[in-house]
Design a protein around this nucleic acid. Structure first.
Lengths: 348, 348
DNA sequence: TATTTTTGCTTAAACGTATAAGCTTTTCTG
DNA sequence: CAGAAAAGCTTATACGTTTAAGCAAAAATA
């Protein structure tokens, strides 16, 4: 009962010609291949009747091009990556590409497995949010001449194609805003990773302090590991917001996930925002609208990030250039109430 | 500078044997193929040295099996589908499968395009959240004997492999809870679609009313179109919560997205939950924790849905059975404050 | 020693596609 | 009307893999 897919051969047999002729006609090469008009017509007719669909696997084998790209994100169930995936899917589709995806879970081994799997499936290129310590994996891609683009984060020591938000700038502006609004001791909670998205954000934070004449205090910076981050964020917050005297008077959360978890804790402890604590988040979330004091956040331009990433990858695939493209996308601060001026805010 | 992938041929040449021998050895068929011990050793050594990786595209062509599945969801950027995707990815991987994904956007044409693209890429099977009116697309898959499983929703008129939450039961229980807590006029906001996930939920709603001796009022049911749903939800809410006398005293939101949008409106209007309005949501969201009155919601078992879907698909692929598997997954209600008893809650 | 069996390999064909090269047959040119 | 050119097709080969079938040499048997 299972109907076999129709191949060029089936059409050729039905029409009574060779597969070559069919291939020429269906690829619009009738002129170059000097195919007779009558035969061409008949082939087209039969192909349509039999609902011929080319086998892209066979084509991929023939050309060594599959028109498939592999997307490796940290976690597709994270709304941030899901949004990126959505746009990448669209951009890829526009260009005739299909997307294989996988989540690395910030784990070296999973990342390597995904890379291997995708390469064995002959993807034409890879989009990767690299995990910490994966330099050698990426290096190997480069040595093997495989087109790829890093997204969201990169390595400071390595020249690669990479598309990221201007993390330093974004964080600098956020902290600057807090300070301008009267906060004297801004803290930050970030993931403990050497990847550039975090180091740049932390650097932006420190530079903003310096430029505003505030001396950085080591206690203000909390680095939490990605695994079990919820617990670690909670612990870090407890240390920063110790009842016996706050270590900080405001906080910047370096990611979406840290923000949501932190806000849950802040909410549970009944800490008043922004009166008791100024708050700014990196990345947005639906929850911000529901926090009694709307959260100020850094809004990354996901559309631009995704577009540029796909664009760069296409370029890498087409030209196989060795030159690296580094794109930095600007972001904006969406002002809520959570970072409001201390002078006006302090009414408790 | 671009290093060519090493093929069986490369190894064969280096060792000085035929590709056939190499293939036998690397596939562990040394015994059956009576390969000499010395040759086998050498082949393995060289293969390892050259870091041979099989070309899965070529294998796919040979066997007519790509070990790839296509996942078509409504919108991968919707956390609900992103979560499902994450688990499906994992389950597929366990079984040696890789996942192609795409978003249909609830549009017939996009759905058809994705199906075609995936089939041309010779996926072994499809997981689909079908869009309204796509019966013929699905029917064709069945006629062509292509393994597939519908997920999250199905068609009432069609026997197919399908894995869904027990939508009727879930909604029945939710509405029952509201009524038991003293609400007399429970309303519902749902998407306007003939797909079973919605019709079942609405049926569950109506049955709960009936079984509790409440006569259904047409005004209590708001069906909003998926496109521009935010506006439509807002309008529907305005009608239901008209200041001149509430049409309903409580609401069930039939999806995550409807809930979030509704809560934004409710929040903006300063409507008190649950004193002025009881609320239950289908599906969860991080935002529920931040609503001043924690939202009661129906929690679908995403793990079970995904697992069963992949399981069913694997079965369909392996056996090519014509028998349809229909799996219904139970859900639970997570009780917050938003559906609390009217008697106790009414303190305004 | 002649025959059979076993061993260890190679050849060939296949999956579906694309295309250069070749081969008739017809048509044009001088 | 001979020779060249053009038209219209087929054959062959390749992509990388798998596997049945075949073949020669060595080993076992009679």
């Amino acid at each position: 009962m299972i109907k076999k897919r129709v191949s060029l051969k089936d059409i050729a047999q039905k029409v009574g010609v060779s597969t070559a002729l069919v291939s020429y006609v269906l690829n619009g090469k009738e002129k170059e291949a000097r195919v007779g008009e009558a035969a061409a017509r008949k082939i087209k007719k039969v192909a349509a009747e039999m609902n011929y669909q080319p086998n892209l696997i066979a084509r991929g084998l023939k050309f060594g091009k599959t028109h498939t790209i592999g997307l490796i994100v940290a976690d597709i169930s994270n709304p941030f990556f899901a949004m990126l995936a959505r746009i990448i899917e669209l951009e890829a589709q526009k260009r005739g590409y299909t997307v294989l995806f996988g989540s690395s879970d910030e784990q070296l081994e999973k990342s390597q497995n995904l890379i291997n799997t995708f390469l064995n499936r002959q993807v034409d290129g890879l989009i990767i949010t690299p995990v910490a310590g994966s330099q050698s994996q990426i290096e190997e891609l480069r040595n093997r001449g495989i087109p790829f683009v890093l997204m969201d984060r990169g390595f400071s020591e390595m020249e690669t194609n990479v598309v990221v938000t201007d993390n330093h700038d974004a964080m600098y502006n956020a902290v600057h805003l807090l300070i301008r609004n009267g906060y004297k001791k801004p803290g930050i909670i970030a993931y403990d990773t050497p990847l550039t998205h975090m180091t740049d954000r932390i650097a932006g934070y420190k530079d903003a302090l310096k430029d505003n004449g505030i001396r950085f205090n080591t206690k203000w910076l909390a680095k939490v590991p990605y695994g079990n981050y919820k617990e670690h964020v909670t612990t870090a917050l407890e240390r920063l917001l110790d009842a016996k005297g706050r270590v900080v008077d405001s906080l910047v959360f370096a990611t979406n996930s840290i923000s949501v978890q932190s806000l849950k804790v802040i909410h549970a402890r009944g800490i008043k925002v922004p009166q008791d604590l100024g708050v700014i988040s990196f990345d947005e979330s639906d929850v911000f609208d529901f926090f009694y004091s709307p959260i100020t956040y850094i809004k990354q331009n996901l559309q631009a990030i995704s577009e540029n990433t796909v664009q760069s990858l296409m370029q890498a695939i087409d030209t196989r250039a060795r030159k690296c493209i580094r794109v930095t996308v600007p972001s904006v601060i969406v002002k809520g109430e959570s970072s409001s001026s201390r002078r006006e805010g302090r009414n408790t």
